[in-house]
Structure formats: structure tokens, C-alpha cells
């Protein structure tokens, strides 16, 4: 079966791209392989680990569970676009201050999810951080405690 390619226009970290993709190409693949966004990590195949999380039009999504054709016209942001000329955002800073990352494979996805979450809930409890903010992400290294601390710290700073 030969399938026609689809033309997709997508903005990634402020830069507009037009790509021609097979419909089956995943957004994570386009971002990693065509745009060099290797900060997006692929830890599972079942939409559970969240390591591939990016923001699409301001909303966090798992880029491994989106076809690129679905992102036509979307404005995509990855963790690389958060810092302003190398100055870490409050969330990023809190992650290093609280030792909230070890191997770092899950970190870019978690930061992008938390970045959106704190827009909606500016003063989350630890329980909400565990149950809601981090619900879409797995970490195998940290045991989450320091991530919860970092989200708390970041929420305080952002307030």
C-alpha cells in the first residue's frame, strides 16, 4: 500500500516548519527526527510515561500519542523554549534547587506538564501535585518526593 504524504505546517519553539509526512508519522517522531527536538524522550508505547510531553497551543500533550497530521497549524513548545536566554524559569530552577531529577529522562516532559498545571492551579496541595500535576508522568529514579517539593517551591515563587 502506498500512501499519499500530507503537508503539515507546524510552529516549533517559535519557528515555522512545513513538512511532508506519512500520515502514520507521530508528532514525537517529527519533532525528534526532523526538527532535532531530542529533548522529547520516548519511554513507553502506552501513553503512560509522559516523557514525550510538549505543549501544543499551550496545552500539554503526549507527543508520542499524536499523529503529526493532527498538529497541522499547531504551535508546539518544548522544554528548550522555556528559559529566557539561559535564565531558568522558576519551575526549572526549583527542579535543580530541590534535586528533583536524577537521570533526567522524564524531566523535560514533567516540566512541561507542571508548567501548564501551575497555570490552572496556582496553589496545589502535595496531594494534588501527586494525583493531578504528576498523574501523566512516570519517574523511575527519584521516588517523586523531590519533584513534589520542586512543584511546591515553584508554585510559591510563581504566586
Amino acid at each position: 500500500m502506498t500512501v499519499e504524504k500530507e503537508e503539515v505546517t507546524v510552529t516549533v519553539n517559535g519557528e515555522s516548519h512545513v513538512v511532508s509526512v506519512e500520515p502514520r508519522e507521530l508528532l514525537s517522531q517529527t519533532l525528534r527526527e526532523r526538527m532535532g527536538c531530542t529533548e522529547i524522550n520516548i519511554g513507553c508505547e502506552s501513553a503512560i510515561c509522559g516523557a514525550c510531553t510538549v505543549q501544543s497551543d499551550g496545552k500539554s500533550v503526549k507527543s508520542c500519542t499524536r499523529f503529526t497530521v493532527q498538529a497541522d497549524g499547531a504551535d508546539i513548545r518544548t522544554v528548550s523554549d522555556l528559559a529566557d536566554e539561559g535564565t531558568l524559569t522558576d519551575i526549572q530552577q526549583a527542579f535543580t534547587d530541590e534535586h528533583a531529577l536524577q537521570c533526567g529522562y522524564c524531566t523535560p516532559g514533567i516540566v512541561m506538564a507542571v508548567d501548564e498545571y501551575l497555570d490552572h492551579n496556582t496553589d496545589p496541595s502535595r496531594e494534588e501535585i501527586r494525583n493531578e500535576a504528576l498523574q501523566g508522568n512516570l519517574c523511575r529514579c527519584t521516588g517523586y518526593e523531590n519533584i513534589v517539593d520542586a512543584v511546591e517551591t515553584a508554585a510559591e515563587k510563581l504566586d
Binding site: A47, I48, G50, T53, K59, S60, V61, K62, R66, A113, E116, Y117, E132, A133, L134, Q135, G136, N137
Partner: peptide
Amino acid sequence: VAHITGGQQVHNV
């Protein structure tokens, strides 16, 4: 909805 699995990334789409 609060109980649907997958996190906000799934809830968004």
C-alpha cells in the same frame, strides 16, 4: 473526569 487516567496531557485531547 477527575478520575480518568493519563493526566492532564490526556485530558487535554
